[in-house]
Design a protein around this nucleic acid. Sequence first.
RNA 1: GCCGGGGUGGUGUAGCCUGGUAGCACCAGGGACUGUGGAUCCCUUAGCUCGAGUUCAAAUCUCGGUCCCGGCCCCA
Length: 424
Amino acid sequence: MTELNRPRGTRDFGPDQMAVRRYVESEIRSVLQDFGYNEVQTPTFEHLDLFVAKSGPQVVDQIYAFKDKGDRDLALRPELTAPVMRFYQAELRNEPKPLRILYFGNCFRYERPQKGRYREFWQMGLEYIGKRTALAYAEVISAAISALRKVGLRGFSVRIGDVGLLREVFRELGIDLSKERDLAIALDKKEAGKVRQVILQKSSSHDIAEILTNTYSLSEATDVIGDLLKGAGEAVEEEGALLMSLFDILKSSAGEEVIFDPSITRGLDYYDGIVFEIDVPSLGAEKQICGGGGYSMTSMFNSEVNGIGFGLGFDRIIMAIDGPERAGGDGVGIYYLIPMGERAVRESISIMDRIRDSGRKCILETQGRNVKKAIGYGINCGADHVIIIGDAEMDEKKISIKDLTNREQVSIPSSDLEKYLEGI
RNA sequence: GCCGGGGUGGUGUAGCCUGGUAGCACCAGGGACUGUGGAUCCCUUAGCUCGAGUUCAAAUCUCGGUCCCGGCCCCA
């Protein structure tokens, strides 16, 4: 036998798992739809250039990229924001603003698989395209929180920061954050000592490292932001004012899971406003289940495009809720038809059609097994009624219906089937 | 890319240290049993991750690959 197993980093999902996944998917989708977001879908693969334009040439290392037979450079999408924005720019740009878009789909990255990280994974997310106001940010963050709560997730924390503010604060210190990769990483890891060290090299400013590498509760947030703005320049003040009013709104609408974390950098790639991350500590190393923020894609599309978005790590959400909240289950009744002998087959098929027409699940014994075996199979499949049609029934134009839950069996004229179904 | 732990029928495992008949349970299919409940008994299918080395002999010891798991790096 040759290699017929799954490619590394991919997964198969069995019926039980799919029931949970579909349930969670539809619950989250419906929450986001309630926030006014409408779903779109884009291709599974795109021109490689789209992703290079968004994230830089180094991302190619982590992308499934290939040439097609026309020698085009293509790539399996590693994320959904870029395709959605491409779609927006090409066809949706004249829609009334703000435009609220929702998406769900599989994405692919060539990375070393580990817990919570696969080479094929699913993302659900949204993009709010329009002017980035405090209310808009509050809406997007609330949507993420509501979605997670809806599927029964508890014990997550929402960290909110501001990449734009961070940039401006450092600019006033004479530091270009984009060029100080080590500093950005140190910030993200909250290595206060290292951050302080870099800052002191460039400036003799007060100990801002301490402020930046801590986190603050919702009630402390506005005071801390106030401290940061004190004596600051115009650019810092402008960014900070937006963040301040966002926290003002969140104070009344969000819960204690929200904290201010000024050191979030989100890779600094294309977010340039307020950013946020949500994680579930119990997941371990790959605990982040949501990342998002405000961005400007102006340079990518040569026209002004502003928005706020987030992506939810669908697979990690499934892992985080695994157990507590399960799918509603397929507890809806299944009717299992057992035809006995040639004469009964045609009648059984028509009975089956009538049951399905009534909106109920119905399966047929197709293996020619005897009644005993067949009933055993029906029980294993979760059927709650079996219907037996044999010569005896055919002679009397009746059908025998057995309720597996109470072992009671009735014989009714086959013309009374619908009446029987309604009576249940 | 780096560090560590693993891999025995479809699933879960015993055997490995101390080399010598691959055992158990579940699941699946069939029979006892051709019209009625998950029972019972019997039968069947099916396995040592791959390659090299050591050895009379390797699931077992050694090395390498591969895949899985946990962590690091990275994370659009």
